[in-house]
Amino acid sequence: MSVKIIRPTAAFADLLPAEYLELAANGPYASPKTINDLGNFKEIIEEHPHCAGCGVALGVRLTAASLPAPADTLIVGTAGCSFFGLAQAALNYSCSAFGNQNAVASGLKRMLKIRYPDTHKDVVVLVGDGGIADIGLDLTLHSWFRREKIATIMVDNEVYGNTGGQESGMTQEGQVLNMAPKGKNFAKIPVFELAQVSGCVYCARVTVASPKKIGQVVRKAILLAREVGPTYVQIYTPCPTNFKFPPQQTINIAKKAEEGHYSFREFISDEAQAYWEKNFSSSA
């Protein structure tokens, strides 16, 4: 997208909402911003109706602030708490049926490649753990098998947040939740490993307690998806409402998880590594 498109016509400027004017003047479109710039520019995600202390809201906000080219990024979402913030995102966002995000993204990406052969249009899937690991697992895996050039990002709160705290495939074993009254009786679905063996050329596991890492891995995942193949990022985004902890504890809980089951992990294929070194290693 050329920034010209969003520049207000002078004669009409005073009729436009202040929000819009600010986005046009100080948004991330003309020169992409990073996590380090937060607080100094008008963000893609702004006000949102998530619960106080929501890890998903933070995950979505940090992801949005890490996009390498927001002016040419399309986000495909699905039902789940992530849509609260994203539905008001200042970029094209789509959300159709629960779990079909990677199939929608596949069609979209292939067509944008044909319509805009000379521009990178980054198609990014940004959805919850239930959306990927349960109801959308087959469509997610198949998009990876087909080597669709999309970045898939999971905001993992280890629960169905949006429907009131039910067990998801990404819930930890033993956790008592709605629909798991005696505790979950199997382990977290190994989506990271599945991604690795299903064709993803880059995978990363991070938490919202490490914003800079999120900035790095999201950028890397999107840039590699442009040219090399599918990529996957899994972000731990604790949910105070359903795990019933005080909202100010979200970051502490994520921090603690980094020493346990949510330690930082990264996988990169040889091909992706070679491509990265050749093209981006100075800015990595």
């Binding site: 997208m1 819009y20 990024t73 399309l74 094209n92």
Partner: peptide, 9 residues
Amino acid sequence: MDMENPPIR
């Protein structure tokens, strides 16, 4: 859905 339109919220 191509980001060729003004990205208002």
